[in-house]
Amino acid sequence: METNTRVKKSRWIKDRVFFGAVCVLSGFTAIPLVLIIWEVLRKGYRQLNWSFFTEEAPNSLEAMMAVNAGDLIPGGVANGLVGSLLMVLMAVVIAVPIGILAGIRLSEHPESKFSGMVRSVAELLQGTPSIVIGLIIYGWVVKPLGSYSGFAGGIALAMLMLPLIIRSTEETLKMLPGSLKEAGLALGASYSTVILRVLLPSAFGGLFTGILLAVSRVLGETAPLMLTALGASAIEWNVFEPMSALPLQIWEFYNDPNLAGLIWSTSLFLLLLILTLNLLAKRIARKWKI
């Protein structure tokens, strides 16, 4: 009887110690994240004013004079913001329909040869370093068109989004109860009607979350854009011209000591954008759960 309680007690202590260790260790993993946010916030918040969003990147000389006079650097990242929006939009328009179709195919015929092929291609694409994607699009689009362009950048981002969309579509559709499809078919509906009007709407939350996460993933991509969109110092709405993007601007600011003051505010903005998208995706996933 007595040994029994002692065993119980030692087990209780072990549990506590283990639980404490888990807490401390998981706390450690949060430290880098907190430090990153703190650092970016501390260095970047000062420049985040209205003109930061509405004005184009300043030139080196203006920036130097402002800094010497002790002022904030004039100008902002409007050219990068517009470029990022346009290119991500193009990527979404290209990757979402193709990705969703491929995802439907994979979840409906998981065993078929063609699905196996699609799945391998998606995995390969996901494993390809983004700079290599940039190189490939350079060869396929930039070279033939004879110019760097936002269009090429959009295609490069689409290639990066595609495997993510395929995967999320497949997973979401597979999670739907099989009885949903049978219920639709049992009413006499055609196969395509059931997919379009029963399965896809039911999967909407998951699909939308997947798209948001894919967008937030490519929003920070820099390397492939260097080889495709190149960058531009002014706002560019023509997608067949070179175009800037937020991460490209960080790289440009880094290369110009006079503009270094904008690195952190741009990073902060990009980080906030991506965090917001992620949080939004989580909320939607929770809300639309069925």
Partner: peptide, 12 residues
């Protein structure tokens, strides 16, 4: 018409 073991109204 068919009715299944588990109720399966269309969720959307």
């Amino acid at each position: 018409g068919m009715v299944f073991q588990r109720p399966n109204p269309f969720p959307t």
